[in-house]
């Protein structure tokens, strides 16, 4: 479950970045804002799409929760608590 979620998170994250990065090359522990220039708008866009794919209700998270998700690993850990099987 978690490896699938991580792979999906990498794909969706790569899709919102302003520069091309191979999803497999993303560092799960890098700061999404500082290292990958992720804007706040794109952060929610990424999470919205990821939640839709993983069938996790975005409403599970407050804006405070989202602010606390600083790395991809933070995101996958938070979603893993609510995720069902990943749909592609």
């Amino acid at each position: 479950m978690l490896p699938e979620l991580e792979a999906t998170a990498r794909e969706h994250f790569s899709a919102v970045l302003t520069h091309d990065i191979d999803p497999a090359a993303l560092d799960l522990d890098a700061d999404m804002v500082g290292h990958y220039a992720l804007t706040s708008l794109n952060k929610v866009l990424f999470l919205t799409e990821l939640c839709e794919t993983t069938k996790v209700d975005l409403g599970n998270f407050t804006e405070h929760d989202l602010a606390g998700m600083r790395t991809l690993r933070d995101v996958t850990t938070a979603l893993a608590r609510h995720a069902g099987p990943v749909e592609n």
Binding site: S40, L41, K43, V44, L45, T48, L58, E63, L66
Partner: peptide, 11 residues
């Protein structure tokens, strides 16, 4: 809505 929630609210 807010800037951060814009895409989620848009749909």
């Amino acid at each position: 809505t807010t800037y951060e929630a814009a895409f989620a609210a848009l749909r």
